[in-house]
Simulated assay, not measured.
Amino acid sequence: MGIGMGNLKAMFLALIALIALNQGLVNANFYKNTVFNWGSKQSSISGNGEDLQLVLDPVTGSGIASKRQFLFGSIEMLIKLVPGNSAGTVTAYYMSSTGSKHDEIDFEFLGNISGQPYIIHTNVYTSGNGSREQQFYVWFDPTADFHNYTIHWNPSQIVWFIDGLPIRVFTNYESMGILYPNQQGMRVYSSLWNADSWATRGGLVKIDWGSAPFIARLGRFRPRACKWSGPSSITQCASNSIANWWTSPIYSKLSYSQMGQMKWVRDNYMIYDYCTDFKRFNWNMPPECSKQTF
């Protein structure tokens, strides 16, 4: 006995609903799904919750945090960075758990004096340990328009994307005894703050407060990710199911064309890689460095 068209349609809609539920807050916005964790008085949300303005002035910076925690998925944000003389400022966009043994995945945008490029600083922490920095210039003016910055995180790898181009991969090498962030849910954070003690030329260039207030604009917050509800979520969010699209084999590694795109970015715009900083580690390099393709 065949399945009628009505039943097929109902099954299809139910499947779509299940996928949407497990993907997380696909239709998220800043009003509904984030809170200001500091600096709320000078910052604002507008555009039916789709647009966020973070402000840094001589008194304080500002920041938001997602109400929910996530484990695996894809977190997208459109960001238009502070224009003009942004030296000493940092616009941060990252995921993090809490506590001294926290996990964290970072995008940080280090400001510069007018006419000089921003530096995009990336890092990953596992169980409280970072020291895995990679830095890049960008191939466009990140202050002139919005660009898409995406953190894609699954049981196999973390990929940092800019406008769909992968710039970095951190692969799960737990089989080699290398820690990987897969045991703790993380919130999504974004902030604009005073980091002139280190951000621009190691702290040599300070913030020009005469140019304040500094404003970073964000939009289209899209966490298509698995909702964390405690340790029981580890198995649920990592399972190979239709709903957990991020565990599909297609997302377990970059495609050949994506590898080529990443190589182009890294060959032309990478300015620091911890895996080549032999002096810093006294030639005792982190073990994952021997496995890196780039």
Rank of each mutant, 00 (worst) to 15 (best):
V188F: 13
N129Q: 11
P223H: 08
A144S: 15
S241E: 03
I151V: 14
V124D: 01
G203Q: 00
H152S: 14
I178P: 03
A195E: 06
T150P: 04
Q134A: 11
V205D: 02
S127W: 06
S211A: 13
P155S: 11
S211M: 12
Q184H: 12
W198C: 08
W209K: 05
N182Y: 05
N182I: 14
D145H: 10
R217M: 09
I242K: 03
F136N: 04
I234A: 00
S127N: 15
P213Q: 04
M176A: 13
Q236H: 09
W209E: 04
Y173K: 09
V124Q: 04
P142C: 02
H147Q: 10
V138Q: 06
S197Q: 11
S241Y: 04
N240T: 11
G219R: 11
F221L: 13
S127G: 13
T235N: 13
Q157F: 08
P213M: 03
P213N: 04
G185C: 01
Y149R: 06
P166N: 08
W160T: 08
Y180F: 01
I158S: 08
Q134G: 08
N123C: 08
I167V: 01
L179E: 11
F221M: 04
T235K: 02
F140Y: 02
G202D: 07
S229G: 10
I242V: 15
T235R: 07
V138I: 03
S211H: 09
P142M: 04
V159I: 15
F161W: 15
S190H: 06
S190M: 12
A144H: 10
A216W: 05
A199L: 03
H121I: 11
L165S: 09
Y189T: 10
L165Y: 12
R168M: 10
E174I: 06
S190T: 15
A238R: 02
Y125S: 08
H121D: 14
F140G: 08
I234K: 00
A195K: 01
I162D: 02
N148R: 15
Q135W: 02
I242G: 04
G130T: 00
H152R: 12
S191V: 12
A216V: 14
G130H: 00
H121G: 10
R187V: 12
T150V: 02
P223M: 08
R224M: 14
